[in-house]
Amino acid sequence: EMRRRSCAPTGVSFNTLMRGFFREGRYKEGLKVAYEMLQLGAGLSVASMEILIGGLCRGGEALKAAEVFAEFLVDAVVPEGFDCLDLVESLCHVGRVDKAVEIVELVLERNRACCLSVPAGVTVLECLMKAGKLDDVCRLMGRMVGEGIVPDTISCNCIIESFCEAGMISDANRLRILTKEKGFAADAATYSMLVQGFGRQGRVKEGMCMLQTFFGHMEASNCKTSHSLCLEFMCRDFGGT
């Protein structure tokens, strides 16, 4: 009707129409609106992408949403500022962690880290950890951190703990060093897990070196606590060495 009256539809008009289709479960028609926006040169805004991807995911079409997002990302029509959190959460929820990993890797490959928030990245890493795929966690987290996407302290410690418990202490320490370069500040819990990990493997020198690093990062006001932890770790993990 707007075309018949020579009125150019706006982004708001398209978004309203697309949202209406998704609310009624008419996903194909909602998707058609998105393609029409691109064909007419209207482009997709962050709101448009949220309506599109969110509508598909809420409608149980997470795989279709992933397909569309990947297509739009390759075609460079995904607007800066769109976060793929809802998409990766939906994929993980339906058990398609592999597809969620593909989405994250594609975002990084296309240098669109702006579309991957820390919560989105952490969601995928946590799902991989639950599946016991620690090698994939190490690889993917390394790529994420390289792009400046650094998990928060609690998430980093959970990942490091999983590595230590699996005997992958060297990988855990490499992640600590890598994230440190991007702003992660290891705390007492971080060093505790690493020292204990080295201790369980009988790697006394590396454990002691980690303790020295721990001392170097503690503020003067925490010296008493630091020394107490040191003695505790030495007695428990190194037999009083």
Rank of each mutant, 00 (worst) to 15 (best):
A76R: 15
A76C: 14
A76M: 08
A76S: 15
A76F: 12
V77G: 06
V77N: 10
V77S: 11
V77D: 11
V77L: 08
V78F: 07
V78T: 08
V78Q: 05
P79D: 09
P79Q: 12
P79N: 02
P79K: 04
E80C: 15
E80R: 11
E80D: 12
G81Y: 08
G81M: 03
G81F: 09
F82H: 04
F82C: 06
F82R: 09
F82D: 01
F82Q: 02
F82W: 12
D83H: 12
D83R: 10
D83P: 02
C84G: 05
C84D: 02
C84P: 01
C84E: 05
C84W: 00
C84S: 13
C84N: 13
C84Y: 00
L85Q: 10
L85S: 08
L85A: 10
L85I: 05
D86Y: 01
D86F: 06
D86T: 14
D86E: 14
D86M: 15
D86R: 12
L87V: 02
V88M: 12
V88T: 14
V88W: 11
V88S: 10
V88D: 05
V88H: 13
E89P: 00
E89N: 15
E89W: 02
E89F: 02
S90P: 04
S90Y: 03
S90W: 06
L91H: 04
L91Q: 03
L91R: 04
L91Y: 02
L91M: 05
C92S: 12
C92I: 07
C92D: 06
H93D: 15
H93C: 10
H93W: 07
H93E: 14
H93A: 15
H93L: 15
V94K: 11
V94D: 07
V94S: 06
G95D: 06
G95F: 08
G95A: 03
G95H: 01
R96Q: 12
R96W: 10
R96T: 02
R96D: 09
V97Y: 04
D98G: 15
D98P: 05
K99W: 08
K99C: 08
K99P: 00
K99N: 02
K99F: 04
A100R: 01
V101G: 06
V101S: 11
V101M: 04
E102A: 12
E102L: 07
E102P: 00
E102T: 04
I103D: 05
I103M: 14
I103L: 11
I103H: 13
I103Q: 05
I103R: 14
V104C: 10
V104Q: 03
E105S: 14
E105G: 01
E105W: 01
E105C: 11
E105P: 00
L106A: 07
L106R: 15
L106K: 11
L106I: 06
V107D: 02
V107F: 04
V107P: 03
V107H: 01
V107R: 00
V107N: 04
L108S: 14
L108H: 07
